[in-house]
């Protein structure tokens, strides 16, 4: 239990650290690491963190064995894994396209949607400042 929780903490720490990086690629990878951490946490929530029998009903039996893992979080995590994968793919392509089209890989320098204000402090007029 403690081990899994620590794994959650470590991957989360690394993920947040990377996400707060100015490098686009690191930022995106960081998010996927946080995703791994969240999946692990969800999995741990099933409280079957030591039971090692997979939740499969054996031939002939009508019910799961007593030492089987809790199947519900597994199903949930399975869904979550697929979803985070989809998100990661999207974000990677997005980051690469951005990098390619702007030549900038610094997230803070990439101020296309929110250009900096004019020297007089007023918000920029489209195409000026």
């Amino acid at each position: 239990m403690l081990v899994v929780a620590c794994a959650v903490g470590v991957s989360l720490t690394a993920g947040v650290y990377l996400t707060s990086s100015r490098d686009l690629l690191r930022c995106v990878i960081g998010i996927s690491l946080i995703g791994v951490s969240a999946n692990l946490a969800m999995f741990a929530a099933g409280r079957s963190t030591t039971a090692s029998a997979p939740p499969v009903v054996l031939e002939g039996a009508r019910q799961l064995p007593v030492d089987a893992a809790n199947p519900l979080p597994q199903a949930l995590v399975l869904t979550a894994i697929v979803i985070s994968f989809a998100l990661t793919c999207f974000s990677l392509v997005l980051a690469l396209v951005l990098q390619q089209r702007t030549g900038i890989s610094d997230a803070d320098a990439l101020r296309r949607s929110e250009p900096p204000p004019c020297p007089d402090g007023k918000p920029p007029l489209e195409g000026e400042c």
Binding site: F43, S48, A51, S52, P55, A68, V77, L78
Partner: peptide, 10 residues
């Protein structure tokens, strides 16, 4: 981790 914790599908 999943594998060792009884979640081969995962």
């Amino acid at each position: 981790l999943f594998l060792f914790l009884g979640a081969p599908d995962l």
